[in-house]
Structure formats: structure tokens, C-alpha cells
Design a protein around this nucleic acid. Structure first.
Lengths: 211, 211
DNA sequence: ACACGCTGGATAGCCGGACTATCCATTATT
DNA sequence: AATAATGGATAGTCCGGCTATCCAGCGTGT
């Protein structure tokens, strides 16, 4: 398959494909001559993944590259690789004052919450900071989250992850398929959940206010 | 309160506050003279809301403005106002080919799913299209979502909305507080849920792979 | 009363991210 | 031999969210 076919089948313009090649999101095709390269179905597949993450997941190009680098580095084991992918999907934290008392307390709350749940989460997981920031923000907005509230969301998330998400991942298959599946699950069903929440809220609003 | 104080208390630089004023995110302060205006606690509150939506929710400025316009338009009733706010929080849809067969089918699936759940959702709710896009994308990625899967997420979302989210909203209070609460709930707890999902997945990955 | 600093208002510039356009030398293809 | 496509490189575009500069008018402290 040549680049024009790749473009036609994926719907991605050629210059954009070239951009992805430059950015390392897509590996070079097999060079057959100085001005020809052959692309395979793996490239098409990868291209579709990139577009899915960009369009539906709004994952920045830099993060996608990190995920891909994790896959490509054969030395790392599967769990580390999944971890790297996971960490890449986090939104980069807002810079905050170093000696921020409020922040430190929130971060502490988060750590205790995770420990209390018995979750096996790395001590440097970016989600810890993201959650801390969310808690601080809620407090500043005058709507502090109670621990009971947080537990509801945590348990909901764990139920989904345990019963419906991680089970889908083919740990015994090739590593790239495992990461790909994980990323797709996380991002696409994350989006679906987000949309469903808004729809459910709208529906409830209608139910309550028309009564 | 003058602008410098507003800036100091919120941590937002003065030029940025001016930008928000220009963009209509923040209403003008009360003019006390040609070169003085007085800002109140409502402005501070609003400013914090803006920053929360921007930093944690990554809601674009244009969407925030729409929410605020909905609040400010006194003619609309509360349900419509909440709807407007909700619709503003949707991510703008990717343009797609008009006569796209795959798309039309997905959109149909979505409509039937929502009807089957008995949800009272407007026929033009942007979430319908967002969900359809997600389904199409999953299909293109070779991981089509089953109806059973979708139902799990839908029910999860409804449980959260019914039991933990819409109940928090003070429908009987002033309208701006209601919208504000809704937006905060949707965005902040949406973020929290997203983070919890990633953390739970990491934890499950650790549990499975270290066994 | 007068200098200095802050204010509101306006305009223009900057920056990062994701493309998009152009050009070129080199092949394939017909 | 003419045409078209390819890979590679470079530069430009567009948008969103600020940020910088300038200015004239006030108002406060001395």
C-alpha cells in the first residue's frame, strides 16, 4: 500500500500522514526505493488508532507518541508498558505553589483514600495529583467533596474496571495489541461514560422539573 | 473590590481578567467613575468557576460563555437553562460525510438505546451524536461495542446521576446557583470519575499481572 | 496642588498545538 | 518521453488562550 492509498482508506490527508510520520506517531513504511515506501495494514490500523485518540479522546499528539514509544520499547514488561501508556493519558498537571498547604492536605487525602481502598497504584501515578487538584478546586468553589461521595465514584470506577474493562485486554497476546486495547478501552469508554452521564443528568432534570 | 484585589485573591493575572471581561465570561464591575469599577464577591466566585472549568474541565472559553449567557437570559425556565448549559459542555462534533451509512446506523442505535432505557433526552441533545461517533470509531478500530456493554455504562451513569448528582442541585434556589452547581457536578465529578477509572485500571493491571 | 500610581479601555503581539501548503529531486507508469 | 506520484524538507496557517503595551483619566498621599 502506498501513502495515497493509506490516505484514501483512512480519510486522513497525505500531508497529515506525513506529519504523523515526522512526529513519530506512525513508523516509516518499508522503503522499496529512494522514492517509494510500502505501508501495510498495521499502518492503517495505527492511523485509525491515532485518529480515534485525537478526535474522540482529544489526546494530544505528544501523549500519543509517548504511548507508542512505550509499545516500541521491547525491554519493558507488559505491566510497566501499560503503566506508561496510562500515565501518558493523564492531563498534564497545572503548576501550583510548592508550599501550598491546601494542596498538600488534598494530596494526603487522596493517598489515604487510595490506600484505604486497597488499590495497588504506583506512588507517582499522575492521577493522584489530578485528583488532588480536583479536590482543591471543589473546595475553593465552596462545594467540598465528602469522603462518602468520593468512595461512590471510586467504587463505581473499580466495578467497571474489574468487571468490564481489564477483562477485555489480551494479556497473553502480542504486547502492542494489549496496549492498544487498553488505550481504546480507557479513552473510548471513558468518552461514552462521560456522554451517558450528561444524558442521564438531562433525563433526570426533565423528570424532576416536569413533575 | 478593585481589579487588583480580584486578581490577588483569585490568583488570576489582571490582563487575563480583562480578557475574560472582554469575552463576556465575567460581567463588568459597577462603574464608580470613568476609571474605577467596583467588583464584588460574586465576581470572585464567578472567576473561580471559570478557572475551574478551564483548568480541571478543559472546557473552552466559548463554551463557558454559552453557559453564562444561558444563566443571564432571565426569560428561559430552569430546565431549558440547565439544558443549554449541558449542551454547551458537549465537545463539538467532528464533521462527517452527510450520507454516511455507518454513521446513520450508529446514530440510530443510539436513539434506540436511549429510547429503550426510557430516558427523557431531547432529540437534538449533542450527546447523541457524540455517542454515535464513539460507536463508529470503536467499530472502525475493530472493537465494536455490544449493546450489553453500553447498557452497563448507561446504567452506571444513570445511577450516579439519580442518586448522587442531581440531588445536589438546589432547584428551588436562585437560578444561577442551580446552573453553577450542575456545571460543577458534571465537570468536576466527571474528572474525578475519569481519574478513578485510570487508577482502578492500573490497580487491576497490577493485581492480574503480578499473579 | 501635584506627582505618582492604579484603573479601565483598546490594540496588538505571543505561544503551543495541529495541521497544511509548497517545493524539489527522484522514480514509476504509460 | 511525458506524466504523475512519492518521500523529504521547510515554511506557513489557524485557533485558542492568554500577555504586553499604551493611553488618558482619576484619586490619594504629602
Amino acid at each position: 500500500m502506498r501513502i495515497s492509498q493509506l490516505s484514501a482508506e483512512s480519510g486522513v490527508p497525505i500531508p497529515t500522514i506525513k506529519y504523523y510520520l515526522r512526529e513519530g506517531l506512525l513508523s516509516q513504511g518499508e522503503q522499496t526505493s529512494a522514492t517509494r515506501a510500502e505501508y501495510g495494514p498495521a499502518h492503517l490500523r495505527r492511523l485509525r488508532l491515532i485518529r480515534a485518540l485525537l478526535e474522540v479522546g482529544r489526546v494530544p499528539v505528544a501523549a500519543i507518541r509517548k504511548v507508542i514509544e512505550a509499545v516500541e520499547d521491547e525491554r519493558t514488561d507488559v505491566h510497566t508498558m501499560l503503566g506508561t501508556a496510562h500515565y501518558a493519558l493523564a492531563s498534564p498537571p497545572e503548576p501550583h505553589a510548592a508550599g501550598d498547604e491546601e494542596w498538600a492536605r488534598a494530596r494526603d487525602d487522596v493517598d489515604r483514600l487510595i490506600a484505604g481502598l486497597g488499590w495497588r497504584v504506583g506512588p507517582f501515578a499522575p492521577g493522584r495529583d489530578e485528583l488532588a487538584q480536583t479536590l482543591v478546586t471543589l473546595e475553593r468553589l465552596g462545594m467540598p467533596a465528602t469522603e462518602a461521595d468520593l468512595l461512590v465514584y471510586a467504587r463505581t470506577a473499580m466495578d467497571l474496571a474489574r468487571d468490564h474493562e481489564m477483562g477485555k485486554i489480551p494479556f497473553d497476546g502480542p504486547r502492542d495489541v494489549a496496549v492498544e486495547t487498553l488505550v481504546i478501552c480507557t479513552v473510548m469508554y471513558g468518552k461514552a461514560l462521560d456522554v451517558f452521564r450528561r444524558l442521564a443528568q438531562e433525563s433526570e432534570s426533565a423528570r424532576i422539573l416536569e413533575a
